[in-house]
Design a protein around this nucleic acid. Structure first.
Lengths: 226, 226
DNA sequence: CTAAAATGATAGTAATACTATTAAAGATAG
DNA sequence: CTATCTTTAATAGTATTACTATCATTTTAG
């Protein structure tokens, strides 16, 4: 096993970008800095002009990589879900119990990406926060159907599909696996946001273990009931 | 009982608007037309200029009522949740079984507002769609904490609080009532959206009875398990 | 060393998100 | 019924956003 070096790369749908940001230095800097800026300004106040200024480059250079900030957001969330999928597969192989695998899967979603897992020097905490507070804007738009046809949401769908399969192992007759899992994934994000900003809408305080515990219990309760 | 006439009015936090849209004809037209326009253009492409044009009035007149389109969105969702709260109270009084009340409550959320209930001549279907696809943008913003301090999200919180109370009647020891209910309310909206736009993330096809059934079963499963 | 690719510099346009000012209409009170 | 107060309309203007285009310069790869 010596000298085993794995080049791990999240595969992103090519239609999301104009030019692969991983193909150049500037591209990678655009990703890293946009994570920092979107996190600090919020998606609405974030602009390519501000991004370019932070990077000491020009607007037109940024536009060479992404058509607009919405596509960039889709890129970032796709990257995130791609990474989580890897995380998920990695953490659940060799666990024979489907119930245990479901618990682990939900924990992965609740924990998000952690520092030691990340290869690129993105600010992972910031990316986690972006996913919590901005990711639903990636699909809550009038262009969702076109984007869906182009496969922009494939990463998210695959993740939900994979966990749904685990749920179906637990109860093959359960008819709402996708509904259940997408509810849980969205739920985790919303509860984290509520814990930080609208605490009367939640009982949790942002503790990811408790959060994962709640949703695991809920999933198992309904999977066993039906 | 003859001549019983009730003036039903949803109470809206005064800080949301600059001038009460219910206080004038133009104000009411702004509400009605903005519902139609936001539904057809989406929030991003919706502007006060376009709204004014549709109404045959001017931008500055619209700005006299609302500071910006975000506040207008908050107004519309507050109105919606205020109405739903009334709906909820009305539909659940005189039901002695807490379980049955929870089922009815979830059905109310899933069904949204229906035509015969509406007093103002808003396009109710359009408002229901706006809530599904735009309402989370009302709080997913950098200004959420200020807005929360001003009480902008009171309607939503009260609704969740009320249904949580029903859940607690069923199981007084349940510690995650708010988490459960806000998950369900958000879940209902997301599942409706997924059914229309990202069907592989759901198993339901937009049938509100099935949707309500799923979430009721889920709620009761976890309320009884714990 | 040269060609090709990538970036930088600069400019420009249409639309957005407002604010301000003044004129005209409508309602209301004495 | 007129004076006045409020509301709306008309017009203008500003800073910013969201791009697109062009061309010069630098970097990189063969």
């Amino acid at each position: 096993m010596k000298n085993l070096r794995v080049q791990l790369q999240v595969q992103i749908n090519e239609k999301i970008y104009l030019k692969d940001p991983y193909s150049s230095d500037l591209g990678k800097k655009i990703l890293a800095e946009s994570i920092r800026l979107i996190d600090s300004l919020g998606l609405e106040a974030f602009t390519f002009r501000k991004l370019a200024k932070e990077l000491g480059t020009t607007e037109s250079s940024v536009y060479r990589y992404f058509e607009n900030k919405h596509k960039l957001l889709i890129y970032l969330t796709s990257w995130y879900y791609g990474w989580l999928e890897y995380q998920l597969v990695f953490s659940t192989t060799n666990i024979s119990s489907a119930e245990e695998r479901l618990r682990v899967a939900i924990e992965v979603i609740a924990k998000g990406i952690s520092y030691r897992e990340s290869i690129d020097n993105f600010e992972i905490d910031a990316l986690n926060r972006i996913v919590v507070s901005e990711s639903s804007k990636a699909y809550l738009t009038k262009e969702v159907d076109d984007g869906n046809k182009e496969g922009f949401y494939g990463g998210y769908k695959r993740l939900v599909g994979r966990i749904s399969d685990i749920a179906l192992e637990i109860n093959p007759k359960f008819e709402n696996a996708h509904t259940l899992i997408s509810t849980i994934v969205e739920g985790i994000h919303h509860q984290k946001y509520f814990a930080d900003h609208l605490p009367s809408l939640t009982d949790l305080e942002g503790d990811t273990t408790l959060l994962a515990g709640f949703y695991s219990d809920m999933a198992l309760a309904i999977l066993h009931k039906t």
